[in-house]
Amino acid sequence: PDFTLHWNGITIHFKGIDEEQFRHLRELLDRGVSLEELEELAKELIK
């Protein structure tokens, strides 16, 4: 499924991740993950 997340004025689209992965990403963003960390995470998910 696809998810869209609005965070700090940025709209991020996640394609092909499951709800569990999306929930994990939201928790990280709510905790204050940096954009660099988010990019690293995205690379991991894409593999």
Rank of each mutant, 00 (worst) to 15 (best):
E37K: 08
L35E: 02
L35N: 04
N8I: 03
K43T: 10
A42L: 15
T4Q: 11
G9I: 01
T11R: 04
P1R: 12
P1Y: 14
L41A: 08
K47Y: 14
E37V: 08
R26T: 10
E40G: 03
K15C: 02
K47P: 15
H6C: 03
W7C: 04
Q21L: 14
R26L: 15
K15V: 15
I46V: 08
E19Y: 11
I17F: 06
I12T: 03
E39K: 11
E27F: 07
L38H: 00
R23M: 12
K15Q: 13
N8T: 01
E20A: 13
Q21A: 12
D30W: 07
A42C: 06
T4E: 09
L35R: 06
E40D: 09
R23W: 14
G32Q: 04
I46Q: 07
D18Q: 08
E37A: 09
E27D: 13
D18P: 05
I46H: 07
I12L: 12
F3C: 03
S34I: 04
D18I: 04
K43Y: 09
I17H: 02
R26D: 01
E36W: 06
L41F: 12
I12R: 01
L41W: 15
L38D: 00
E27W: 10
I46A: 12
E40M: 06
H6N: 11
L25I: 05
L35H: 05
E36Q: 10
T11I: 10
F3S: 01
L28Y: 07
Q21D: 12
A42M: 14
I12F: 05
G9R: 01
G9F: 03
P1K: 14
K15D: 14
T11L: 12
L29N: 02
E44R: 01
F14W: 05
F14V: 04
E44V: 03
G16Q: 07
R31W: 11
L41I: 15
L29P: 00
D2Q: 13
K47M: 15
E19Q: 11
K43F: 07
G32T: 05
A42R: 04
R26A: 11
S34L: 06
L45Y: 14
L41C: 01
I10R: 06
F3L: 07
A42S: 03
H13G: 07
I10T: 11
W7K: 12
R23Q: 13
A42N: 01
R23L: 14
T4Y: 14
H6K: 10
V33S: 10
I17C: 00
H6V: 14
D18C: 02
F22A: 08
E37F: 04
E44K: 01
W7S: 12
I17Y: 03
P1D: 10
L45I: 13
F3H: 06
L45V: 06
D18K: 11
E39R: 09
S34G: 08
E40S: 06
Q21E: 06
V33W: 15
A42I: 15
K15W: 14
R31Q: 13
D2T: 14
F14N: 00
H13I: 14
P1E: 11
E39S: 05
H13E: 12
R26W: 09
E27S: 11
I12W: 04
E37G: 03
K43M: 10
L5N: 00
D18A: 07
S34H: 04
I17V: 06
L45D: 02
E44C: 02
H24K: 12
R23S: 11
E19M: 04
E20M: 09
H13T: 14
L35G: 02
G9T: 02
N8K: 08
T11P: 08
E39A: 09
H13W: 09
W7G: 04
F14P: 00
H13M: 10
T4I: 12
F14D: 00
L25W: 03
I12Y: 07
N8D: 10
R23D: 12
I17T: 02
H6Y: 09
D2V: 15
G32N: 06
T11W: 06
E19P: 08
E37Q: 07
P1N: 12
R26K: 14
L45N: 02
H24C: 06
D2K: 11
L29Y: 11
E36K: 12
Q21K: 07
D2Y: 13
L25Q: 00
R26V: 13
F22L: 12
I46Y: 06
L35I: 15
L45M: 15
L35S: 04
D30Q: 10
K47V: 15
D18L: 08
L41K: 05
L5G: 01
L5P: 00
Q21C: 03
I46N: 14
E27K: 08
G32D: 03
I46E: 14
T4W: 10
G9W: 03
L29D: 00
L25V: 04
G9N: 06
N8Y: 04
E19A: 13
L25P: 00
L38N: 00
E27V: 06
E20C: 06
T4A: 12
D18Y: 05
N8H: 11
P1I: 14
N8M: 07
G9C: 02
E19R: 10
F3K: 04
I12G: 01
Q21G: 13
W7Y: 14
I10S: 09
F14I: 09
A42P: 00
E40Q: 06
E44Q: 04
T4H: 11
D30N: 13
K43Q: 14
T11S: 10
L35F: 09
L5E: 01
K15R: 07
H24R: 12
L38G: 00
H24T: 15
T4R: 08
F14G: 01
I46P: 04
F3Q: 03
T11E: 09
R31P: 02
E44S: 03
K15I: 15
L29I: 08
F22Y: 10
E40Y: 06
K43A: 14
G32V: 12
D30H: 13
D30A: 10
T4F: 13
L35C: 03
D2E: 13
L35V: 13
P1A: 04
L41T: 05
L45W: 15
K47I: 15
T11V: 11
L28Q: 08
E20W: 09
E27P: 01
F14L: 11
E37I: 07
F3R: 04
H24I: 15
E39H: 09
I46S: 07
I10Y: 07
I10E: 09
G16E: 09
H24E: 11
H6R: 07
A42Q: 04
L35M: 11
H13L: 08
F3V: 02
R31N: 13
E44D: 08
G16P: 04
L35P: 07
L38W: 06
F3A: 02
A42K: 03
N8C: 04
E19D: 14
G16I: 05
L25T: 00
K15H: 13
N8V: 02
L35T: 05
L35D: 02
K15T: 15
I12V: 12
